[in-house]
Amino acid sequence: MIYLVRHGEAAAGWGDHPDPGLSELGQKQAAAAANALMALGATSAISSPMLRCRETALPFEQRMGLVATVVPEISEIDTPEGIDERATWLRTLMAGDWHGGSHSFVDWRRAMLDFVSGLPDQTVVFSHFVAINALVGMIEADPRVVVFRPGHCSVTQLTRANGPLSVAEYGSESATRVL
């Protein structure tokens, strides 16, 4: 099993701060996620370099006595150059599919799936809403940008039943607003 964990609630909106840490609620969510991951048998971790993911990984790292490997392959989707209003751009992207628009992000999605596919079982991946959706969309050949709405610190489980990754269980969902 590979566990995809969306970061906890951020202290600032996506359009307001380029790299916010966690809110007080987000820190509590991260602690609860660490307990759940330990109960699932997770033994190693990787994290997006974004602060909200690093802070979400921290309780798991402390309980397990390890440090998550920080990798850019599972980071947040990059805003294309020339976009001034990030939140508006992201809302528009999330309403569509990967085949629309002027930038398809094919390379980003493929590199992320290739990277996660090479991880050993029982690895936790601390990542982001769009990145997790891109992964499960690639796995399930679903072209929508938003396949499901993972809540903060939700745990989506991937398995390798017959070789390639498949989604064993989606994490808990909640409404997500892009601010």
Rank of each mutant, 00 (worst) to 15 (best):
T79M: 07
Q122I: 01
T43W: 00
G65L: 11
L179V: 10
P18E: 00
V147K: 09
N133M: 12
V116I: 14
D19V: 08
A31F: 05
V155H: 01
D84K: 14
S102Y: 11
A10K: 03
Q29E: 15
E85G: 02
P72D: 13
P72T: 08
H103L: 12
N162H: 13
G82D: 04
M94K: 07
L37N: 01
G96D: 05
M138I: 09
D97N: 13
V147D: 11
A10F: 07
S166F: 06
F129D: 11
V167F: 09
S117M: 06
N133E: 12
A45N: 02
G101R: 04
G15R: 01
S174Q: 15
G101L: 05
A33D: 05
G15T: 00
V145C: 06
M64R: 15
Y170I: 01
R91Q: 09
R86A: 13
F126G: 02
Q27M: 12
P143Y: 07
S44R: 12
I139K: 03
S44V: 05
A168V: 04
R160M: 08
R177V: 15
V145T: 05
E140G: 07
V136W: 02
N35A: 15
R160D: 10
V167Q: 04
V155K: 01
S104G: 10
A68E: 06
S47A: 13
L165F: 10
Q27T: 02
A168E: 13
Q122K: 13
S117N: 07
L66T: 13
E85P: 00
V71D: 13
R149M: 14
A10S: 15
L113P: 03
M94Y: 03
A141T: 11
A33P: 04
A30D: 00
S47K: 00
A11H: 03
I77H: 05
E173A: 14
R6D: 09
P164K: 04
W89P: 00
R149Q: 15
H128T: 06
S172F: 07
Q29W: 07
E24M: 08
V67C: 09
L113W: 09
R160G: 09
P164V: 05
R52P: 06
E169F: 07
E140Y: 08
L93S: 02
A36Q: 14
V130T: 14
G26R: 01
T69Q: 14
